[in-house]
Amino acid sequence: MNAVARPVEREETSAGAETVISGRNVGKTFGNGAVVALEDANFDIPKGAFVSLVGPSGCGKSTLLRLVAGLIERSSGSLTVHGKEIDGPHEDVGMMFQRATLLDWRTSVENVLLPTEIHRKPTKADRQRAIELLTMVGLKDFAFSFPAQLSGGMQQRVALARLLQTGADILLLDEPFGALDEFTRERLNLELMRIVGEVGATTLFVTHNIGEAIFLADKVMVMTPRPGRLAHVVDVPFARPRELDLQQTPEFNAMVAQVRDILGEH
């Protein structure tokens, strides 16, 4: 029960695992330089890592995610995925938002199939995969329900299944459960951790909640506003699988305090 709180040596990241996402002095300004959303961000994200992004509102978290997704162009610096400069949306990268953004006129499984449909006519295997993913997020019985018939939490599960259907090995999650109640969010966080572990994806997870950020992550990137800066990267040493009561341990709380200090200094 309390053994989970034991910090462990981390081999994967320290022993030079392959870097998947890499930023060098990445900057982004809006309105011809009037708004500096992100400045001089340097980071390396190793393969399979779960990285949380925390920071106050407006510090450039969503901007960083959209840069990695290739939805917007950086203003300066270098940003690579699998060693290649990002120059637009990339099929290795999938994104999920605070709102589920499901298509109301499609059933759950049709929503999950959308990423496939964009690239080709779905095959029988694609359809099977979609059902499997819905099963994985616990919505097998709701495969043919429409979004309006689902609760907010269920809608986010469908969105998660859709994200996995892309086959992307880099998942960008922008406060994916931020609009849900605490209880649902906690459960979905646990499931997210399990699922991401199963598929071995590299994950960038934005949240406002420091505890959640630490609980889920291998690394926490702490950002500060005006201009958006990457202030610090904190390694999270807790072993996996993690249980909820990890959050009650002194080691965990010390780490929360540490992140809060970094945020407070700025």
Binding site: G70, F97, R99, T101, L114, P115
Partner: peptide, 14 residues
């Protein structure tokens, strides 16, 4: 059109 849905489609390479 919902801006996030639009971004979603773009990120999917539509």
């Amino acid at each position: 059109v919902n801006e996030e849905a639009h971004q979603l489609f773009r990120s999917l390479g539509a």
